[in-house]
């Protein structure tokens, strides 16, 4: 933990300090929002086993979010607390990507969203775990193990859905196309990431991007599914605080109890 303080304290410019905070918030908000979405499945999954698995993945993501928020608070008391970051910010202050705020839809949409998401983080954490900023490398080394399980789980479902029945194949393919416009936002480095890359070479976006595309192509082809041909990216961008309507709806539910009792301890 001391090393995290040193990294922060040692940041040469406020701009890079701010960039690091923003980059951490991007990862943390992604984890919080997706963790929340997955928890909406609890009790409603297609089998008991899958109910348990989705809850597990949800728990991992929420744990990641909590851990990162706490690191931010530890380094800057102005953030207040992890709960304050999760429950008392408005949607326009959230830095999560658009992909994670998309509604669960059917099981195929949930699984495709998870593959798109976990594959990116799998390759990102692979690089971050050896980056020079210890706050990021320590976290990435731990989170990578969780993400690799998420990716395996969702990847196996892609195979089952793609190579299962006519209906499951159609649903999986529809989800692949529907969520594709939100992938670009993940692969293109955000402003915060670009600053950190320029200053500390935290990761190499082109390596992440090509490994990601390679992985998806192999997976989808094995699942007898097609990679979408269209490259049109969504005009929305959560890293630039331009969200879809879904986020504010999600937050109004998630934050309702906490905000109704702002002075309460739980």
């Amino acid at each position: 933990m001391t090393s995290n303080r040193v990294e922060h304290g040692g940041a040469a410019h406020t701009s890079s300090r701010k960039a690091l905070d923003h980059f951490v918030l991007e990862i943390a908000d992604d984890a919080l929002v997706l963790g929340h979405r997955l928890s909406e499945w609890c009790g409603h999954g297609p089998t008991i086993e899958e109910d348990i698995a989705l809850s597990n993945i949800s728990l991992d993501h929420l744990g990641q979010a909590q851990c990162l928020y706490e690191l931010l608070v530890e380094n800057d008391a102005n953030y207040g607390s992890a709960d304050k970051l999760a429950f008392f910010r408005d949607s326009f202050e959230f830095r999560n990507c658009i992909l994670v705020e998309q509604e669960n839809g059917d099981f195929a949409q949930t699984i495709v969203r998870q593959v798109y998401f976990s594959a990116y983080y799998y390759f990102l954490y692979e690089q971050l775990s050896s980056c020079p900023i210890s706050l990021l490398s320590d976290f990435a080394a731990k989170a990578r193990k969780e993400v690799s399980y998420h990716l395996r789980h969702a990847g196996e479902w892609i195979l089952r859905l793609g190579d299962g029945t006519t209906e499951s194949k159609a649903r999986a393919q529809a989800a692949i196309v529907q969520l594709w416009p939100f992938v670009e936002e993940l692969l293109a480095p955000s402003e915060a990431a670009s600053i950190l890359i320029a200053e500390s070479q935290v990761f190499e976006p082109s390596t992440v991007s090509s490994a990601y595309k390679q992985y998806l192509e192999t997976l989808l082809s094995e699942a007898t599914l097609e990679v979408p041909s269209s490259t049109a990216a969504s005009p929305l961008n959560g890293r630039q605080l331009k969200h879809s309507e879904h986020l504010s709806q999600l937050l109004s539910v998630m934050q309702s109890t906490a905000r109704a009792h702002p002075d309460a301890l739980w």
Binding site: C42, G43, S55, S58, L59, G63, Q66, V253, S256
Partner: peptide, 24 residues
């Protein structure tokens, strides 16, 4: 499960999901 999405803190949210998962 009805309160998972509205649990008032991260700690409570995580504990509640884990609990409901135990029931499953």
């Amino acid at each position: 499960g009805n309160w998972i999405t509205r649990a008032p803190s991260l700690r409570r949210k995580i504990a509640l999901i884990a609990k409901v998962q135990d029931e499953a």
